[in-house]
Design a protein around this nucleic acid. Structure first.
Lengths: 159, 159
DNA sequence: TTGCTACATAGGAATCATTCCTAAACAGGA
DNA sequence: TCCTGTTTAGGAATGATTCCTATGTAGCAA
């Protein structure tokens, strides 16, 4: 997501976090770092599988859990379908397409300095905030305007 | 959540939306309207069950789906645990406690007028946005500071 | 280099929220 | 009052995620 991390960079990152560096773990993290699509665990599994045919989806979940605890990865919420992951650690926000569920990063720095909200208990300590913009991407807008009378509501088409 | 809706108000609301008014549906919606806790489907089931012992959790899900499609209810995302629901229709934002997963409404009107974000495709049409503040409520802060050496991460304690 | 040990992996089974299916009940209009 | 389409309830199905466990292996120390 962020910059291009080489293999040795990733291994260094793991070492800094006290994580063992295994081929599977490296491949999964590398795939996530180089993606802008906020992939699901299964997306990552599909992407990494060809190189590691024995890879288990289980391992992907375990690895994502480890990386999350190490602070290298965050989970992104888009409805209550499957979890999606992001290795972009700099503070940022998201734009979510209600049609195809695509997630785009928004790096607009103005959004990072919202004043703390009015009307919450004084002893509530805010540690972070994130803005989620929702709407329709160009592709989904065009396909929506062309289906004149369809009353349907949902048509999933991940990414 | 919003104001105190009487039973007849609710029946009128249903009629306006073209929804049949059944005792179960009324009870579920009433429970949600009068709650500030953003309950789950199961919370609502538990709350309404005593008055309707035959009530099915299924019906709660079905009803919430119907109300959502009618625009009377919205789903709130807090991680990928269970879905939580909100009958507060005015634009508002949320403060989420990372300790006990409580959700508070934030009605701060300044947050409703964020300028549209920089750096997204021109043909992306934003229809809404919502700010999620995360942190720790007073209770969770106090219990966290008292557990001096516990390295644990998660301790769920819904609402 | 070799061994040890704790952490990783893979596979299968379990969990659990949510959805699907279906027959019976019922709200609301004719 | 009757009819029809919606709603309800119950059970079964789905599907993402987690749990369990035996085997494998990275990284450290001798």
């Amino acid at each position: 997501m962020t910059m291009n991390l080489s293999l040795t960079d990733i291994q260094q990152t793991f070492r800094d976090c006290g994580l063992k560096s295994t081929p599977q773990r490296t491949a999964i993290y590398q795939a996530l770092v180089h993606s802008t699509a906020h992939p699901t665990a299964e997306n990552l599994f599909t992407q990494v599988s060809p190189a590691y045919p024995m890879l288990s989806l289980n391992t992907v979940y375990y690895t994502l859990g480890v990386l999350r605890k190490a602070g290298l990865v965050q989970e992104v919420n888009v409805g209550h379908d499957r979890a999606r992951f992001d290795a972009n650690l700099s503070p940022h926000h998201h734009v979510i397409c209600l049609g195809c569920h695509a997630i785009l990063d928004v790096m607009d720095p103005r959004l990072n300095r919202l004043s703390s909200p009015l009307g919450i208990p004084k002893d509530f300590e805010i540690t972070s905030h994130q803005v989620a913009f929702r709407g329709y991407c160009g592709t989904c807008r065009r396909s929506r305007s062309s289906m004149t009378t369809s009353p349907s509501g949902k048509r999933p088409a991940i990414q």
